[in-house]
Simulated assay, not measured.
Amino acid sequence: MICKNMCLAAVTSDGQNLGITISKSVLESYIVSSNDSLELKLVRRATDVDDDSTTFRPEMTHQVFGESESIFGYRDLRIRLYYSAARLTTFLGLTYSEEPDNVTNMMAGKLQAGFHTNLDNFCLDLKKDINFRPPGELQHRFTTAGNENTITKQYEVYLCTSTTPEFRCFHERLQTFLLWFIDAASFIDIDDNNWRFFVM
C-alpha cells in the first residue's frame, strides 16, 4: 500500500509488518479543535438554547484539553456547555458522528457535580432562575437608562465571603469561566478568609 502522507504501520516486536497501515490524513480527520468544538451560552429562557446569536466560544481550552487544544477520536464534535444566566446551573452535551476520547469525563473534573446532561431537564431548571438573587449582602444598586431600542435595566452588586450561605456552590459554577478566558488560570482557595467576592 502506498501512502501519500506519513503512514503508521503495525509491526511485531521482531519487526514483522502485520499489514495494518493508517495514513496520517486518516488520523488527522479524527482530531478536532477544542476551541472550535466548544459552544458556551448563558441561557435566560428555553428559546435561547436554539438561538445561535447567544452562543459564544472560549478564548482557550488548553487548561482542560491540553496544550494542543485538540481532541482525538471524534468527527463532527459539538460540545455544548450552557449555564443558566442567573444561578449558573450547568448543562454539558455532546454530539458527534464518530466515537472518541471521553470528553465528558475530561470536563466533568472541572465542573461542579450535578451538572445536567439532559437538555430538557436543564430547560426545566431555568424556572428557578426567575427569582434568583445572588448570595451575599447588597452593596450597591444602579440603573442603566434605556432608549426606544433598549430597555432600562437595574443592576445590583453583592458582597460575599467564603462563609456566605449558598456562595460556595455558586462560586464553583462561576469559576469554570476562568478556564475558557484566562490563560494559566487556577481556582482560588475559597477557604482563605482574605478573599472578598463581588457578584453582580
Rank of each mutant, 00 (worst) to 15 (best):
M107W: 02
M107T: 05
M107D: 01
M107C: 03
M107V: 10
A108F: 05
A108C: 05
A108K: 09
A108N: 05
Q112E: 07
A113P: 15
G114W: 00
T117P: 07
T117V: 10
N118Q: 02
N118W: 01
L119Q: 10
L119N: 07
D120K: 12
F122S: 00
F122E: 00
C123L: 06
L124R: 12
L124W: 13
L126W: 01
L126E: 01
K127T: 13
K128Y: 05
D129K: 00
D129S: 01
I130Y: 14
N131W: 09
N131I: 03
N131Y: 06
P134W: 11
P135W: 05
G136Q: 04
G136Y: 02
E137C: 13
Q139L: 11
H140P: 14
R141T: 12
F142W: 12
T143P: 08
T143M: 14
A145E: 06
G146N: 08
N147K: 01
N147L: 09
E148H: 11
E148V: 08
I151Y: 11
T152C: 06
K153C: 07
K153T: 08
K153A: 07
Q154E: 13
Y155D: 09
Y155W: 11
Y158G: 05
L159M: 09
L159R: 06
L159W: 02
C160K: 00
C160L: 01
T161E: 03
T161V: 04
S162P: 09
S162A: 10
S162V: 07
P165H: 00
P165V: 00
P165Y: 00
E166S: 09
E166H: 14
R168W: 03
C169W: 11
F170N: 10
E172D: 15
E172G: 07
E172P: 06
R173N: 02
R173W: 05
L174M: 13
Q175N: 15
T176A: 05
T176V: 08
F177L: 08
F177V: 15
F177Y: 11
F177E: 08
L178H: 05
L179K: 01
L179P: 02
I182V: 15
D183E: 10
A185G: 04
A185Y: 04
S186G: 10
S186V: 14
F187Y: 12
F187A: 13
D189F: 01
D189N: 03
